[in-house]
Design a protein around this nucleic acid. Structure first.
Length: 395
DNA sequence: TCTGGGGTCCTAGGACCC
DNA sequence: TCTGGGGTCCTAGGACCC
């Protein structure tokens, strides 16, 4: 059996190119722009990458480069990206070749192929890649190997060596040769902190890590590190989380202009809370906790800094907008300190459970029933006429 | 002038219980 | 007043991911 990993290339940029033919021929970046021209680059197509642009670059730092090269700057359209992602998911499931197909993130998928012959695996995976290209226009890289981590390694090869044409199958016999040329920092689970630690131990490739004595790994790293280590050796140790129901829902923004007034910040927080609540209902979930956080601009050494958060437990699971908005506003009141300039704030809903539809609060049945109907009508109007058609007083 | 917005998991340590 | 060993649950913060 093989694990398969599918990773969309430059996903946000590819979505824009696939849906806007007029962008053909121009370098494309996707950025979360605002009317002041702020924001950072979230995704780039290959030609934009060749210009030296990188993910995370603030637009204002590369303004000239963008203009000189006629780079198309697309505002991020997350709804579109989610829609195309669902479409890819559906097409691959319908095709029926890949088993246990799960969405790992907006642009990555995992699954299994109940085959042992690497050539047959490669044949099927090329078909999957073609199917995705034909139905959504999104180019993908595909990797297959004995474990999920190795499959992700294979995808790295598929993307970094042109000869693979986007599909790399790594049979057990080729595992060591492949890992010997893969930098340790490229391995799934090795981030900014772990990499220097490993390098100090003399580990510079994925193979170096896989060949450490197990006791050393157990003593030095956490369970996550051990899982990565085992998977690199070809022993499955990672199980894929069922991502159908999120465990938390967040809305937050960095403000274009810093906010000093409590009322203005309160309106922002109410708005975040309302959007979180709408997402929650959209997923047929309820939450049992609300968190609010605020922060000043950490890049401004000349200003006083303050960051804080607060969480409230709700008496019973709910997706009721007024309840969530009022709770968030009350939390903000405990957090707000006058005299600071706030640059960022957000709302997080946590302890999320399925909305089984049962009425939990027996004492107030009629009122709650009316509230639920009110929520479903506002959601319906917003679905049909746009996100902000009907909002609640606080927001 | 202008610096993202989401998520997940793990661990340590405190509170509390017997 | 002093003291131990075993357990659970919760939270904060770190690390990682896209």
């Amino acid at each position: 059996m093989y694990c398969i990993h599918i990773d969309c290339n430059s996903y946000f940029a590819s979505c824009e190119i696939a849906t806007r033919p007029e962008l053909k021929g121009r370098p494309v970046v996707v950025a979360n722009t605002n009317e002041h021209g702020g924001g950072v680059i979230l995704a780039l197509d290959t030609t934009a990458k060749k210009l030296g642009l990188k993910r995370g670059m603030p637009l204002f730092k590369v303004r000239d480069l963008l203009q000189e090269n006629d780079v198309a700057i697309c505002p991020a359209d997350h709804k579109k990206y989610r829609r195309i992602s669902r479409q890819i998911m559906q097409e691959v499931v319908n095709q029926g070749v890949v088993q246990d197909f799960v969405q790992y993130s907006i642009d990555e998928f995992f699954g299994t192929l109940p085959l042992d012959d690497p050539d047959r695996v490669a044949h099927h995976v090329r078909n999957v890649k073609q199917l995705i290209a034909d139905t959504s226009g999104i180019p993908v890289g595909c990797g297959c190997a004995a474990t999920y981590t190795l499959a992700k390694c294979a995808t790295w090869f598929a993307k970094h060596y042109a000869g693979y044409n986007g599909v790399c199958v790594m049979p057990p016999t080729k595992r060591e040769r492949a890992l010997a040329v893969m930098p340790i920092g490229e391995v799934w689970g090795v981030g900014r902190q772990l990499r220097p630690r490993l390098e100090r131990m003399g580990v510079s490739t994925a193979l170096d890590f896989a060949q450490l004595p197990r006791q050393v790994v157990e003593k030095t790293f956490t369970s996550a590190g051990l899982h990565t280590y085992l998977e690199l050796q070809g022993t499955p140790a990672v199980t894929l989380e069922n991502r159908e129901r999120r465990k938390s829902i967040m809305q937050s923004r960095t403000f274009e202009v810093m906010i000093k007034e409590r009322d203005e910040l309160s309106r922002k927080v109410a708005h975040f809370a309302a959007r979180c609540a709408a997402s929650l209902r959209h997923e047929k979930s309820l939450c049992r906790s609300v968190t609010v956080f605020v922060a000043t601009n950490r890049y401004r050494n000349d200003l006083a800094q303050y960051a804080n958060d607060a969480t409230a437990k709700l008496p019973s699971p709910t997706a009721d907008s007024p309840t969530i908005i009022h709770t968030a506003e009350a939390l903000l009141d405990t957090l707000f300190r006058p005299g600071y300039q706030y640059k960022r704030a957000g709302v997080v809903l946590g302890n999320i459970v399925a909305d089984a539809g049962q009425q939990l609060d027996l004492f107030d049945h009629d009122r709650n029933e009316r509230r639920r109907k009110l929520m479903s009508v506002t959601d319906m109007l917003n679905d049909r006429f746009g996100d902000e058609t009907v909002t609640f007083g606080g927001s």
